[in-house]
Design a protein around this nucleic acid. Structure first.
Lengths: 340, 340
DNA sequence: TAAATCTACGCAATCGTTGCCGGAAGTTGG
DNA sequence: CCAACTTCCGGCAACGATTGCGTAGATTTA
């Protein structure tokens, strides 16, 4: 590889010491204006770039943040990553992305990998299979800054950013109730996930306002988060054959929404069930059958999470006051979805 | 942040020199078996991890590879990234992903950012807006290893991995010809992109075998690669109103295929045109109208590209023999798409 | 038994950058 | 006119890991 320019090269060329060059480049007041100009000009001329490794070694910081998501191919996450990237880029941070594929073991490995001093902080969205949080709490106790987004956990006290899941699910369910549906089902991701818990709560709250309670036969989960088509198919089939018959369904996960639609296309004589699913698919308008959907502001969530994390990293004093930011979502309801 | 264990800590604890510890960890023959065991055990006990920055500073390598794609939210790229990641992970490399959003200026900035000694090599898929390649050739001349994938260029002599675009387009067009279509259109991404050139060639070759030539009115491009809905709509509208009337269409880009379907849904009285589009969408089977499609083996391409790049990085001697690997794709033709 | 060889380890320099100390000029104040 | 500052800069050391070189002590060879 080519020999990159260093501070020493500049120092030698200008007959000053490396220290002076370093100070000049950092615009220290301990360097005369003339010398600064000389150094800056020469640095620019030879296209000098500071060696990030040397800086990291000195400063004990890497200027990189790690991101842990289930899957980059998931629309929600790729949009969130776009938001994260834009903020990180502006603040001079690299973004290192890892995927758990919703597996606990991958999550643990990735976290350790990232944490070995190669990142200054972590942005975490939990895997749907994770029920033990020691790998996270351990790292947090050791002082690694982290911010949770989307799938957050209570076990760690830090900044969190997520959709207003309770409210979103409440509104969606309320709308269905207003439209006259009464046998409304709920199909969620793994039950320990925050998004599942909150969306189920919003769903239940809405039902309660109508004097209804969640019917046990109408609530179901996909423990593999929609990765397993058969699991989704079984859940949907069970919901569809419930008694009394389900007339509407709220789906609390992006990927399950997709698979659910796929399942529906395989039904010979499709039951008329109105579906509202959480989904950030860019092409959901092209799907057939079309479903109503709740779209989260993934980009905004990514941006906020990144901002919080960088603030945490760069904070001179320990932060003790944390808040959970709720980003609003949009409900897109298709009237054509209503049964006659 | 917590104080991580270093070689010095181990040295002090065991009353040996840091040199010995370093050598023991690297299994040097210059250390006695007993000492090695002691060091290894203690290192494991205190969970010692080598500081990557110090290593990078010494070795002048970063153990990171940079990836330049148009957009991670694009199915093809997110699948390719999965492939890249799996290989890189196995070989101990970090993956740093940047997105050009198909813009030339972003591509230049990202490349420089990555190249400033923070990566050992680059995996590049060109932005659709790039027509000047100096930023790439300069870096290549300076010795930065790079491998191109998907959207490759002739200007740099190195490993390249792409779909067998000529063959894929040839087969798709041939199939349409066999089915009786004669007024077959072609809608491509920006015309300077390798994927556009090759797919257009395959299209033309197939036509030639039937004594036909590409009709100028039936060949069109989207210079913004399908990012601009209006551009796609105009192109599609023009193609649909061509004379003689188009009866089938080959679309040479993932994102344009998506937008094209979206355009079609807005047509009041949809013309019966059979479409085959390149697309790696995971949900294309749910689209309406459904289209036939060519699916590239994105994961495999990512894997091969990463392997080639790492081989290049780790090669002790300059490599002069390069090859372009062609990964095969799958044509999914829907008979229901055929007009009566 | 003395010399040659080998084994196992320490010393010090290095990668590029930065913090700290100190010192030579020039400036100001009493 | 001298002490006390200020300004500007050089030198040293350190971040953590690696490595060429040197060498004490053990072992082998003649």
């Amino acid at each position: 590889m080519f020999q990159a320019a260093t501070i020493k090269h500049i120092a030698q060329a200008l007959s000053v010491s490396p220290s002076t060059v370093s100070r000049a480049l950092r615009d220290s007041h301990e360097v005369s204006t003339d010398t600064k100009k000389l150094v800056l000009e020469y640095a620019k001329k030879i296209n000098y770039r500071s060696n990030p490794n040397a800086q990291s070694l000195k400063s004990r910081r890497s200027n990189a943040i790690g991101v842990l998501v289930a899957d980059v191919a998931n629309s929600f996450f790729s949009q969130a990553i776009n938001g994260i990237e834009s903020v990180a880029y502006d603040k001079g941070y690299h973004v290192i992305i890892t995927q758990s594929h919703d597996r606990y073991d991958r999550e643990v490995i990735n976290m350790e990998h990232l944490a070995n001093r190669s990142v200054d902080g972590l942005l975490i969205s939990m895997s749907s299979q994770t029920t033990d949080y020691n790998h996270v709490t351990d790292l947090h106790q050791k002082g690694l800054p982290m911010v949770f987004f989307d799938r957050i956990i209570d076990e760690v006290d830090t900044f969190k950013v997520t959709t207003d899941n309770v409210q979103s699910a409440f509104e969606a369910t309320s709308l269905l109730l207003e439209k006259g549906f009464r046998q409304i089902g709920f199909l969620g991701n793994a039950p320990q996930l925050s998004i599942t818990i909150d969306r189920l709560k919003g769903y239940g709250d809405a039902l309660k306002r109508y004097g209804l309670g969640p019917h046990p036969d109408l609530v179901s989960y996909c423990y593999e988060g929609g990765r397993n088509y058969d699991e989704v198919k079984m859940a949907i089939t069970a919901l569809f054959s419930s008694e009394p018959p389900m007339d509407a369904l709220l789906i609390g996960s992006d990927q399950i929404s997709t698979e659910a639609v796929r399942v529906l296309t395989t039904f010979d004589n499709p039951r008329k069930v109105t579906i509202i699913g959480f989904s950030n698919s860019e092409v959901i308008d092209l799907w057939s059958p079309r479903i109503s959907y709740i779209r989260q502001n993934a980009v905004e969530m990514g941006k906020i999470a990144a901002q919080k994390l960088i603030a945490l990293i760069e904070s001179k004093y320990p932060v003790h006051e944390f808040e959970t930011t709720l980003v609003s979502s949009e409900l897109h309801f298709l009237n054509e979805n209503i049964k006659e």
